[in-house]
């Protein structure tokens, strides 16, 4: 998944749902098998009923925690925390993954 450096911005909790994700988010569209927008597939009840049901049932969401430091001369680093949350047995669960993204 590719995203311009400037577009990596904070997405506070509870975040954006993976199912029925709005266009322009990480999971909207989820897949594109063609070279054009006609092949875009979103995780919707109609497109992927079983996958959709699973994600919706557990309310899978993602949020981003972005820390940004600029050292001047275009030298900038973002520390991005990808926080995936879901509900499992009435418990709010979270999986965290951190990556550094340099601008240069």
């Amino acid at each position: 998944m590719a995203m311009p450096f400037e577009d990596i911005v904070e997405v506070p909790p509870p975040g954006i749902a993976l199912y029925d994700a709005p266009a322009g988010t990480f999971f909207g569209p989820f897949i594109n098998t063609s070279g054009s927008s006609s092949g875009e597939k979103f995780i919707t009840q109609g497109n992927m009923p079983e996958f959709y049901s699973y994600l919706a049932q557990h309310d899978f969401r993602y949020s981003l925690s972005v820390s940004n430091v600029s050292f001047g001369d275009g030298d900038e680093i973002k520390s991005v925390g990808i926080l995936v949350s879901w509900i499992e047995n009435n418990k709010n669960m979270m999986y965290r993954l951190y990556v550094y993204v340099p601008s240069l």
Binding site: P14, A17, D59, N92
Partner: peptide, 19 residues
Amino acid sequence: RGKPPANAGKLPTYWTDSA
């Protein structure tokens, strides 16, 4: 089944780290 739970999208008091 297949529907989001009642508290979907609400900010919880805390999460449990899966790891």
